[in-house]
Design a protein around this nucleic acid. Structure first.
Lengths: 246, 246
DNA sequence: CGTCGGTTTGAGTAGGTTCAAGAGAAGTGG
DNA sequence: CCACTTCTCTTGAACCTACTCAAACCGACG
């Protein structure tokens, strides 16, 4: 699956700067010891399959991934995007099987950590233990925020939510007010619970309202205040309401 | 908040049978040591407020709770229901603040565990450590399943999802084919991302189709196969489709 | 240069919402 | 115990958002 046979390299300096801030200094060296740097992955590469045995955690170094949830019948939906510095595969701790398909959105690089090794290390290091808990919990509250988004927001609000959230989470381009969109409109729609056409319509509306500048792979935020107003459902200011439904 | 001053009792035998199966035997006694049984809570009691300091984990012993996610502007949505044997407050590990309001749906009983104590115990017990990780991860994949439900299903599918899921998760009444509904139609609608009217219409349709028997506080499942067919989106068999949107 | 996937825009439709009003159930106080 | 209030539940009718279907456009790549 992830042919780690010949390409085992210790990427200590490579990923060190990419580790989440909460990882304690005391274990960074130990983590580097057990890390395996995978060769570059092409667009569309499936890093993990739903249901496959949960043997390693992944850390994104470059590129971007989508996490796809599969339904019983063949339906599927994207439940999150992963950018450099984020872990992938955390859901595996539940059933010791991956909970999603993890697919590269473009040329990407990741390194992997053996689950057993991480668990063993966490036993000895209280800080890493706390860090793991914190990370899982953070993912959980993110997922629940997404539940709120999917269940209670209109199309325009969903898009404003995505753009503002992406910007504050550092998924933005270096200039600070552009957001990168490594995924297709269809993928974005899947994540937001709408069709690709609806995604395009909302983005177009935002562009016509001079709130954003739209490129194929990035969105430049021009008027953050207006976006926030739309997110909060500023009445009469735009089509589509869906207020109420407490 | 939770006046634990005078009512400190050690409910060892009270909650022991209610602990999740994954809690290792070796720590049940220690957990019992630090548990505090709270006095009975009335319907509507708010056990935890969003943003309050995360000091204790709760375990439901009797009754039922809803976990409410708050939006910035005052909106809110229910992101989950908790029944006896389930922990509440796990999201607190992220920011050391509760991520939801936890509200009793009816007369309920819970016991609480100090977070610091649980963490300390988990340091010493590898099994409890694994158990905590597993529990958090399980909540995470549940939340992601709900994302799928909210983003990709029609009203009828959502209801089928809820009923089938409730039955297999043991939220059902003792007879095994009835599902208890401790929440109002409005609360159920909030969780499923629909209005109370839509909830009622779908339930009525299921009743007319002889798939379920409906009471105010419980639903009796008469034809599970049909429910499953509706969940998978059996075409032409019922109004509302929304297939496609991969 | 032609094909193919991703994108964009338009017209029509339908599933779910909103609004309104009545039927039940539950709690309150005399 | 019964009237009274109050809340939840239920049903109907009109409306509207977002989906579906269809067709044109664009860029990438062989």
């Amino acid at each position: 699956m992830t042919d780690s046979a010949q390409s085992r390299r210790r990427p200590a300096s490579t990923f060190d700067g990419r580790l989440p801030a909460c990882v304690p200094d005391s274990v960074r060296a130990d983590l580097a010891q057990m890390a395996v740097l995978l060769p570059d992955l092409p667009k569309g590469h499936v890093l993990a399959h739903t249901g496959a045995r949960f043997r390693q955690l992944f850390l994104v170094l470059r590129g971007a991934f989508k996490a796809t949830q599969l339904g019983e019948d063949g339906q599927s939906q994207i439940v999150g995007f992963r950018r450099p510095g984020e872990f992938m595969g955390l859901g595996g701790f539940a059933e010791h099987r991956y909970a999603h398909d993890l697919v590269a959105l473009g040329p990407s690089q990741v390194c992997e950590f053996p689950v057993a090794g991480v668990e063993a290390l966490a036993q000895r290091s209280p800080h890493l233990f706390d860090c793991l808990l914190e990370h899982l919990a953070r993912r959980l509250v993110d997922a629940e925020r997404d539940q709120f988004m999917l269940g209670s927001m209109s199309g325009t609000q969903k898009m404003a939510y995505f753009l503002l959230r992406a910007r504050e989470r550092g998924l933005s381009a270096p200039d600070g007010c552009s957001v990168e969109l490594p995924m297709s409109r269809k993928d974005l729609g899947s994540y937001l619970g709408m069709t690709k056409e609806s995604v395009i319509r909302v983005l177009s509306l935002m562009r016509r309202s001079a709130m954003v500048d739209i490129g194929r792979q990035q969105v430049r935020i021009l008027d953050e205040q207006a976006l926030r107003a739309w997110l909060d459902g500023e009445p009469e200011a735009f089509p589509q309401s869906r207020r109420g439904r407490t």
